[in-house]
Design a protein around this nucleic acid. Structure first.
Lengths: 198, 198
DNA sequence: CGCGTAATTGAAAAGTATCAACACTGGTGG
DNA sequence: CCACCAGTGTTGATACTTTTCAATTACGCG
């Protein structure tokens, strides 16, 4: 079954399938690539010539607004797909993807991706599932955000991803929650004082 | 091209295509149905046995949170698709769809929808486009929301949909913006006092 | 007219941002 | 080895925004 309600999502089916295309079919339009922490995998506002599937590591997907604020859409884990929206809709990238840990990806040529989606039924299904999972994830997340305090949002986040505070920088967490770093710190302290957090 | 950045979105390609399946193919698994303002088209938390395409009218898609607050995900216009996420992921409905104006829909049988998606290339493409548009819409919307004041959010909304204040109830607008009715009223007054709004 | 729903407003409380100062850490070069 | 630096994290005080609560008013309709 799909796992949409965890913070760092994974999609092992898609990862396995992509790995097979790369390893067994030796498809030259699917290449491996590595990125160091902090490196941009995909910049915002550019033409997107590849679709990516994460093989290893954690990346953040964020959107920089005109007023300079960054909003983190998601953290991507293994098997997560990105670049597909832009390739399908033929638009420039609206998000920036950046490696948090060391990241390995499968990089799929734009043209090949489109072709394979329309000819390979199984691949088509995997992509559709990935899209519906994204929608479901975004819907729940936005609704929860709007309807709850930042304390509840933080608790939910930690519940979904216990290593949160050790793996992700405070600023990134704040950008994900849509609050300032100051507010995040206050919230954490409040929780600690009430022994709801170590 | 896709039109993701307006508030009430439409998808005429999908509407036309669905209409053809209904009118020309006389497909019995695609039926027309009418709803009066306020009627629920799809309740939250139930098994979804149909996928819907809006033929006429405006509907709201909202998610009720455990604390009783409603969050409006989108307003659906002509050609917009819903129920597809649940049918594809085989989950219960996480949103409630309710008619705002008089609404006419094409109601597609769950089984038929799945079959057609996997056999009809053109239909498959239309569904994928619809999914990617939803994602793009949600991504931009959430990012803008988190990064801007409610005044800016309201102005953006009115810019995208000028008849907003006359067509949609204040409570719905507030639920869409994720603020209280009180705050919405204050924001509107402030804008009027500064002649930024009639 | 009377009823219920939607809209409006004020005042106090709660939540969050802003700003500015300071602490901690790991790495670099004198 | 230590001084320095940059990046990250922490904290307090204040200002601002939004919610909450409660009281009224306006509107559509049988």
């Amino acid at each position: 079954m799909s796992r949409t309600l965890i913070m760092i999502r994974v999609n092992l089916e898609l990862l396995t399938y992509t790995a097979r295309i790369h390893d067994k079919e030796q498809e030259p339009d699917v290449r491996e690539q590595k990125f160091s922490p902090g490196e941009q995998i995909l910049p915002q506002g550019k033409r997107v010539s590849h679709v990516y599937v994460i093989k290893k590591g954690i990346a953040k997907c964020y959107l920089s607004e005109d007023n300079g604020k960054d909003f983190i859409q998601e953290f991507f884990g293994e098997g997560e797909l990105f670049g597909e929206i832009e390739v399908i809709n033929d638009t420039f990238s609206f998000c920036c993807i950046e490696a948090i840990t060391e990241v390995e990806v499968y990089r799929i040529e734009r043209k090949y991706f489109k072709e394979r989606v329309s000819t390979d039924t199984r691949f088509n299904q995997l992509i559709i599932k990935s899209l519906t999972n994204k929608i479901s994830y975004k819907a729940h997340r936005h609704a929860y955000h709007q309807s709850h305090t930042s304390e509840e949002n933080l608790l939910r986040l930690i519940g979904m991803f216990p290593q949160l505070l050790s793996k992700i920088s405070k600023q990134d967490i704040a950008n994900y929650l849509g609050i300032t770093l100051r507010s995040l710190n206050r919230t954490i302290n409040d929780l600690k004082n009430r022994n709801l957090l170590s």
